[in-house]
Every structure is written in structure tokens, then in C-alpha cells.
Nucleic acid binder design. Structure first.
Lengths: 200, 200
DNA sequence: AAAAATTGGTTCCACAAGGAATTGACTGTC
DNA sequence: GACAGTCAATTCCTTGTGGAACCAATTTTT
């Protein structure tokens, strides 16, 4: 998260990489050669939830710089760029759908949509049949933002995958796909319920 | 991730799963059989940054429920539990180290440490040599929290990995390790710089 | 056909979390 | 040995974000 700002820059926070023993020896030895603090080492390699630790770490190291750049370059908050990115993937989607799929609160999306519209990056068109919902779509300006940003996102992914051979990438992709797919069968998210008020 | 609250419950937000083509056909067909909204489908399978999309998704689906449960069960915010978890991994660490490694702001950590201390979950011991820093450690109560929570974290990871055979898990672990390791060589994070003030 | 329930989107409000500035402790330099 | 620079931790201030309440459009129930 994490990772950018607004009028008063405010890091979108990290909250991506923290939890999560690797079958020991997979790379721990390699890593220890690095001048890396002992704790980060422990977090990644002596963690009872090593798999989780690793994808959390990847998410952090991926999102952090990219959204930071988006903020700097376009003055857009993470959530706002997510909307643009979403529309590029599926034009005419509604705010609710983005909310459901990305797990951002719907009011947060409402704000992002409003601002993007004001800035001229997207257009809203209320459905003639169900006048509650409005279909969103990218304006040329919005598409331009996307066009400029995409290469960065692709490049960083490329960079991260660089140490892997083509076959390895395929394998990694397939394995992760398998995991993701199975999660859909278990069933889609379900926003966490209002937790008990904290006692202190 | 997302995902929990405080006095006034406040989701720690999603911001984990949004961006990120898969070599097409890896599982897209499989997924389309699911009653899954078109958009989420597009996000995961027709995304120019498919790898990123997938680990972001995994992070979301992992952190979301777990930290939600932590909040409900212990009344602890994500960051607070992260501290507990970190101390279980490496006792006697300092707040700064956790901050550096997890990319949470240091004042955020300061608050978490303060509260955890007040609740009796951790103890702080100022270094005799350098009296600026204080070494943190888990109290029995704090360790109890960890002991109770850990199985949940492990279990969800298990559950996520369930569709994979043992060999596949090894492979996935190794490949992800390779990627993570390479990121250390590139060099450790570096907090994003203050972005330009947004113009609107 | 009216009332009740649901849903997309918005507004209000409270709070958690980050940036900047501060304090107190240490290190290095001349 | 004082002065500047650094660093861990904290406090202050601002703002982004989520929950709850709300509105309006739609659907379902009786």
C-alpha cells in the first residue's frame, strides 16, 4: 500500500508485507549473504507462514513504488488509479462492481469516481433501465493516463520476474492460478463484519 | 490489507488486490465456469500485469479475514498484531526495525507499541548502551495471543495451498523465493519520497 | 396497489495513519 | 569540549478511509 498521497501527501500505507519456515535451505543461505537486517530475514525465511509472507512482501514491493509514482506524476490517489485501471480492463463497469471486486469501501469509490469525473478522466452514464446505477468509462484523457502508466506496471512485473526462466514463469503463473482458482470455489470474499468495539 | 478496526471499527482497507495476461488458457476457461462477475475475471486473467494481480489478490484474501478475526477476538489492530507477530519471530527487536521491515510509518509503530505495552502484551527495555532505542519483547500475555492466533494463520495458508500437491508447493515456494531474493539484490525498499502536492 | 425490503450511490462523522516537526541521546569533527 | 549531524522515539496536525445513516430507484411481498 501502499503508498502515496493527496493534497497533504499521505502514504497509502504499507500494510502489505508483514506476516507469513520455508523448507529451509531453499534460499535462506543465499539471503543471509546479503547485508539484510536479521529481522527481515526472519520474516521471510523463518516464518511459520512463509508463503503468505512472501506474497505479502511481493505486493508491498510492487505496489509501493508504482502508486507512489502515479501520485507524483498524475496527482492521483491509489484508489483513483485503480478505477482508471479497472475501466481499462472492463469498460462500462459500475462503481459497485469495482468496490465488490477490489474490496474498497463503496463510499471510498464514490469519492474517487466523483473526483475523476471532475478532472475529466472518466465519464458517468446513468443506466436508462435502472436509473440508480451509472456506467463508468474512460475519457481520452483517462485513457492517456492509463497508456502512460501501464508500461511502468508491466516493466516492474517484468523486472520482478527477471530471475526466472520462461519455463519457470509459466510454472509460477500456473501454480498461482491454481491457488487463486480454488479460492473462488471456496467462495468469494464477503466483507468482514463489524468487529466488536475495542475495550480500551 | 486490510481489515479491522478500533474503537470505532474501521476497516484497515483493502488496498491489496487490484492491478496486475496470463499465458491465456492457463485457467481462464476453468474460472469462467464459476459464477464470478466478469470484472473480477478480467482483473485476474485479462490483465497485462497478471502476476501482480494474482499476488495482490492472494494478499487480500489472506489478510482480510485473518486480521478481521484478530480485531474481533483480541481487539487488536492489524499493526498491533504485526508487532506481536514480529516479536515472536525475533525477540528483542526495536520499533524502528519493524518499521523499516514492514514499511509501516514509525509513528504508527510508536502508537502500536505504546498501546500494546499498556495492555500488557509487550515489554520495553531501553538499551543500556544507546538509551535512545528500546528493545521490545513479548510478555506471557502477548505470547498467549500469538499462540492462539498462529494456528489460524497457518491454517488459512494451508487451505490456500490445499489444491497443490506437495511437490507443487515446493516448486511454488522455491520460485517465489527466487523472486524475493532477487529483489534484495536490487536493494531494499527505500520509502517513497514526498510526492508533489496534488493540484486540485 | 400499497408496504416492505433491497440496492446503487452519496453524505456525514469519527478515527486511524502518515508527514513534519520535536525531543532526547549519540557520534563525529575541528 | 563545544557544534553540527544523525537517529530512535514521540507529539502534533491533517487527511484519507470506513461505518452508519440516508436518498432515490427498483423489486418483492401480501
Amino acid at each position: 500500500m501502499m503508498v502515496l498521497s493527496r493534497p497533504k501527501p499521505q502514504e497509502t500505507s504499507a500494510n502489505d508485507a508483514e506476516i507469513g519456515t520455508l523448507p529451509e535451505g531453499t534460499g535462506a543461505d543465499l539471503l543471509s549473504r546479503q547485508r539484510l537486517d536479521a529481522f527481515t530475514h526472519a520474516r521471510l525465511w523463518k516464518n511459520p507462514c512463509g508463503f503468505a509472507a512472501r506474497f505479502n512482501y511481493l505486493a508491498l514491493r510492487y505496489n509501493q513504488p508504482l502508486y507512489g509514482w502515479v501520485e507524483e506524476r498524475f496527482g492521483l490517489a491509489r484508489i483513483e488509479f485503480v478505477v482508471i485501471f479497472s475501466l481499462s480492463l472492463q469498460d462500462g463497469i459500475t462503481a459497485s462492481e469495482i468496490s465488490a471486486s477490489t474490496a474498497f469501501a463503496k463510499n471510498t469509490l464514490s469519492r474517487a469516481v466523483k473526483r475523476l469525473n471532475k478532472l475529466g478522466y472518466i465519464m458517468r452514464r446513468t443506466d436508462a433501465i435502472d436509473r440508480r446505477q451509472q456506467f463508468l468509462s474512460l475519457s481520452p484523457a483517462g485513457r492517456a493516463v492509463y497508456e502512460e502508466a501501464l508500461p511502468r506496471f508491466v516493466a516492474l512485473e517484468e523486472e520482478m520476474l527477471a530471475p526466472l526462466s520462461l519455463v519457470e514463469r509459466e510454472t509460477l503463473s500456473a501454480l498461482m492460478a491454481k491457488v487463486v482458482l480454488a479460492m473462488f470455489e471456496v467462495d468469494v470474499p464477503e466483507r468482514t463484519p463489524p468487529p466488536s468495539r475495542r475495550e480500551n
